[in-house]
Amino acid sequence: MQPYIISLLNHSKENLIDLWKKELEAVRTDNYLDSVSDSVYESTNQDFMQFIMRLISTDQDQAKEQLSSFAEKYIQSGWPLSYYTQGLQAFRRVILAILSEQESDVQAVLSTFNELETWIDGIINQLVYDYTGNWEDIIEMQKLSLLELSAPLIPVFESITVMPLIGTIDTARAKLIMENLLEGVIEHRSQVVLIDITGVPVVDTMVAHHIIQASEAVRLVGATCILVGIRPEIAQTIVNLGIDLSKFPTKSTLRKGIETALELTNKKMVNL
């Protein structure tokens, strides 16, 4: 930014801040921030305004780095991006009003304002970029966390573990199921693994293929796989599609599956 523009803004700093502060009150209502306490909103406004004023005289590379750090701080606190974009639009309006008061030459006003507008647009673009990137990272981390939780392997008896599956099984989740199964069988020294598909809404050829692959992998590491939770409609679908599940045992309920698993490990349930 040109030195004379920096000098102009610094010279009008107090007036600029006062006018901008009034504009930010309208931004609060537009962004549904009425539930935020007055003290928090006031503090955030001060941080925002002071930060932008510091950027005016900051080197471009340093400004970009500082802007990214600033954005990350408020992204993590859940502050909306629209507050900052609308706040910078308000800053733009205030600057134009001040320039119009101080300069009678229209061409000079437009020239100065165009440079300031380019500078403000750069800040907005950087904020949008940082917000988008951070939210994508957060969503990806949440997605991975959900995937990890969606394929748990639970030891229920000595040498017997259960993997309850809920929801749709896609290729990414099938890979995770396979990894968790193999790691869990070795970790828990399982002899029998029960895959419970009671919560799987649809079993098509792809889902059946993934389950068969998982069963084969378990067999190769020395354990037996039992498929449980075969509902009537699922059984009918499997038959209609011609899916061959004859290579490993299937049971209609988890209870029946556990009874079979106990028999395979030379154990049994006893009523006391």
Rank of each mutant, 00 (worst) to 15 (best):
Q2K: 12
P3Q: 07
Y4F: 11
N10H: 13
H11R: 14
H11A: 02
H11E: 08
L16M: 13
I17D: 01
L19R: 11
K21W: 15
K22P: 04
E23T: 14
E25G: 09
V27G: 06
D30H: 03
D30Y: 10
D30Q: 14
N31R: 09
D34I: 10
S37C: 05
S37T: 15
V40D: 13
E42F: 01
S43D: 12
Q46E: 12
Q46F: 00
Q46M: 08
D47W: 04
M49C: 08
Q50A: 08
F51R: 11
L55W: 04
S57A: 11
S57N: 08
D59I: 03
Q62M: 07
S69M: 15
S69L: 15
A71V: 14
K73F: 12
Y74T: 11
Y74K: 05
Y74S: 11
Y74R: 11
W79I: 14
L81F: 08
L81E: 14
L81T: 07
Y83E: 03
T85Q: 00
T85N: 03
Q86C: 00
G87V: 00
L88C: 04
R93S: 15
V94D: 01
V94C: 03
I95W: 06
I95Y: 06
I95A: 11
A97S: 13
I98T: 06
L99C: 01
L99W: 13
E101W: 02
D105F: 07
D105T: 02
V106S: 00
A108C: 00
L110F: 06
L110E: 10
S111R: 05
S111H: 06
T112Y: 08
N114G: 05
T118A: 09
T118G: 10
W119R: 08
W119G: 01
I123P: 01
I123N: 01
Q126T: 13
V128S: 04
D130C: 09
D130V: 15
D130F: 04
T132L: 13
W135C: 03
I139N: 11
E140T: 11
M141W: 10
Q142F: 01
L147G: 15
S150V: 13
P152Y: 05
V156R: 13
E158G: 11
I160S: 01
T161N: 09
T161M: 14
T161H: 02
M163L: 12
I166A: 01
G167V: 14
G167I: 13
T168P: 03
T171L: 02
M178T: 09
M178W: 00
L181K: 02
E183F: 06
G184F: 02
H188M: 06
S190T: 14
I195R: 01
T198D: 08
T198G: 10
P201E: 08
P201R: 06
V203K: 03
D204K: 07
T205I: 12
T205D: 00
H209Y: 04
H209D: 11
H209E: 14
H210N: 15
I211L: 15
I212F: 06
A214Y: 05
E216L: 09
E216F: 06
E216S: 03
V218R: 06
V221G: 04
G222S: 10
G222H: 13
T224A: 07
L227S: 03
L227R: 01
G229I: 12
I230P: 07
R231T: 10
E233N: 10
T237V: 11
V239M: 15
N240K: 08
I243T: 06
D244G: 01
S246V: 00
K247A: 12
K247I: 14
K251G: 04
K251M: 10
E263W: 00
E263Y: 09
L264W: 00
